[in-house]
């Protein structure tokens, strides 16, 4: 973090696309078995995935297939049973180190939002630099206000999360993650329960943020249009246990505008993703029927 000039470019140095971007994740043969009361639940089975630095990687797959489990393993919220995960070549977790250490290089934006309700939006954003001792309290607050203003949240910095709309809260949460200058943003269905209009604003805001920071994004979603519109790659994973089924490359040039959603290219990609997802959904449904029977 650049302490001497905390306000330049909202604290996120502009990265040139041609240089090798940081934040490459490689997931190799990762397996995760939960063991509640001795009943083994295999959530992830021998899954491998390579995510290049600065890539927007979208994960879609049936409900309950183990996507959140994978994200939690990268974030260091729980251990993996076997395999390894590396960030920029460095081992996060693997043999002899089942659980990754949590760190500000991998910031999570949670499925239901996790802004601290007892802090204002600006205080929430300033929290990371303050606890890391990277900035003094007043400098951190000033930087937080700048970054919120850049995200169009300038006039709600003094409000508590409960006082603003869910869209604003979610945008503020992404700002809270970005102030730590992470290598990777991990998003777990951040825009679930949002109406189409709010969602489209969220998408534009996230794309704008991405174009500015080129941070690696690992994004779990159920919304296929969202996956194609935002992503460089869409990874479709199988029903539980989670494995990579198919990767669809999205070569729509950036910056993207909403108009591409009605293009022929988009429609073809949509069909391709839809087919793979539908196959897995049917399998998941049948597996569910079997379990119930």
């Amino acid at each position: 973090m650049n302490v001497s000039a905390p306000f330049s470019e909202a604290g996120t140095p502009h990265k040139k696309p041609e240089q090798a971007l940081k934040g490459a994740i490689s997931i190799r043969n990762v397996t995760k078995i939960y063991d509640p009361e001795g009943v083994n639940v295999m959530a992830v089975d021998n899954a491998s995935m390579e995510i290049a630095g600065g890539e927007v990687c979208m994960i879609v797959g049936p409900s309950g297939c183990g996507k959140t489990t994978l994200l939690n393993a990268i974030a260091g919220f729980h251990s993996i049973t076997s395999g390894e995960i590396r960030l920029d070549g460095e081992l996060l977790c693997g043999p002899g180190k089942p659980k990754a250490k949590q760190g500000a290089d991998r910031m999570v934006v949670f499925q239901h939002g996790a802004l601290f309700p007892w802090k204002t939006l600006a205080e929430n954003v300033a929290y990371g630099p303050i606890v890391q001792g990277a900035l003094s309290k007043s400098l951190a607050m000033e930087k937080a206000r700048h970054m919120l203003a850049d995200a169009g949240l300038g006039d709600v910095g003094n409000k508590y999360p409960g006082e603003v709309s869910s869209g604003m809260a979610r945008r503020a949460e992404i700002v809270r993650a970005l102030i730590n200058d992470p290598k990777v943003l991990l998003l777990d269905e951040p825009y679930r329960a949002m109406d189409a209009l709010t969602k489209s604003i969220m998408h534009e805001s996230l794309l704008e943020t991405y174009d500015r920071t080129k941070v690696t994004i690992f994004f779990i979603t159920h919304d296929l249009e969202e996956a194609i519109f935002l992503g460089d790659k869409v990874h479709i994973v199988t029903t539980r246990p989670c494995q990579l089924k198919k990767t669809v490359n999205v070569d729509i040039p950036r910056p993207r505008s909403y108009a591409v959603q009605s293009s022929e290219q988009f429609r073809v990609l949509m069909e391709e993703v839809n087919e793979a997802v539908h196959e897995e959904a049917i399998k998941a449904f049948e597996a569910g029927e079997r379990e119930l029977a």
Binding site: A75, Q102, V108, F110, A114, F116, Y127, G128, Q132
Partner: peptide, 13 residues
């Protein structure tokens, strides 16, 4: 909520 603890820990609390 464990999310608050996780978020704070990720930020280095």
């Amino acid at each position: 909520d464990v999310r608050y603890l996780r978020a704070a820990q990720s930020m280095g609390a």
